[in-house]
């Protein structure tokens, strides 16, 4: 397992990754405590204070409904974390399982991995768009769709890594001890995949944010009233000349967070088992 001590070693001497980590910590805190720190109700409409410039008390200004952008941004952090984590869980559970089982049971793998190959032929965003048009706009559906889109790459990556581990001598040794399939998969193979999986998760998290923002922007993601960074961009895009701050703040937040997550992911990738480095090439 990646112990605390080794986390310190992962980030030692990597200034940018450290800054990224600090930024992500801010985002996480904002997500957790948004109801406590948000100065206004993010849903409260104030027709008199429409499109106020940033200042006091509206730090990020207000949007065309007169809602406080700073409060919406804080709640947006919550959506970012929720969708990121949700997508990671969906992708790792479905894609991870498909990849591992396909590598372990060769015949099943022939069938499943061809299916994965077909799905991977579609660009990620296109697939997400198609799926979202079929589904209702909701937080849950957004998570599932983004998760499923990245499940394919996750399956590929885990397929490769499991295949390598399956050929390890300690797996042969476990077979000779009489270990069954489940024990070999989950006791001998999976624990050796934990650190590469964490790295993979960090990349999925980053890309899920971009993907979610893109879906929101195209009006296919979260319901429009939900405060998310993508929705903030989407809703206010027509005011780009009159109130550019309405796009600058959420845009900057998205860029900073994705960039930070990638920096952290890179640092983690550089510190894991060299055997797996080639497998994780970004999503």
């Amino acid at each position: 397992m990646m112990a605390v001590a080794s986390i310190r070693s992962v980030f030692a001497g990597r200034t940018f990754a450290q800054i990224g980590l600090v930024w992500l910590a801010f985002v996480a805190l904002a997500a957790i405590f948004s109801p406590l720190i948000a100065p206004f109700d993010p849903y409260e409409i104030d027709p008199i204070a429409r499109l106020t410039e940033p200042g006091w008390p509206h730090l990020f200004g207000t949007d065309h409904f007169g809602r406080d952008s700073f409060s919406r941004a804080l709640y947006g952090a919550r959506m970012t974390v929720l969708i990121g984590l949700g997508a990671v869980i969906v992708a790792l559970l479905t894609g991870g399982l498909v990849g591992m089982l396909s590598a372990y049971f060769t015949r099943l793998g022939h069938v499943l991995m061809r299916g994965v190959d077909v799905l991977m032929a579609f660009p990620a965003l296109l697939m997400a768009l198609v799926l979202m048009t079929l589904l209702e706009r909701s937080v849950m559906n957004t998570i599932i769709v983004i998760g499923v889109v990245y499940a394919t790459t996750t399956a590929r990556i885990l397929f490769g890594m499991t295949l390598k581990l399956k050929g390890e001598v300690f797996v042969d040794a476990a077979v000779c001890s009489g270990a069954g399939h489940a024990s070999i998969l989950f006791r001998h193979i999976l624990p050796n995949l934990v650190s590469p999986l964490l790295v993979q998760a960090s990349f999925i998290f980053a890309f899920a944010q971009l993907q979610a923002a893109a879906l929101d922007f195209l009006g296919l993601g979260l319901p429009p009233e939900v405060p998310s960074w993508g929705n903030m961009l989407s809703e206010e895009r027509i005011y780009v000349t009159r109130a550019p701050w309405l796009l600058i703040f959420p845009g900057a937040l998205i860029i900073l967070s994705v960039f930070s997550m990638n920096l952290v992911g890179d640092a983690m990738r550089d510190s894991i088992d060299p055997r797996f480095k080639d497998d994780i090439a970004g999503v």
Partner: peptide, 26 residues
């Protein structure tokens, strides 16, 4: 079976007791 490579034949994530108890319980 005893294997050749002592570095590869033990699961790096299991303690010695865990490795040795596996065949006992199976």
């Amino acid at each position: 079976m005893i294997f050749q490579d002592p570095y590869a034949s033990l699961n790096p994530r299991l303690t010695v007791a865990q490795t040795l108890s596996e065949p006992l319980f199976i």
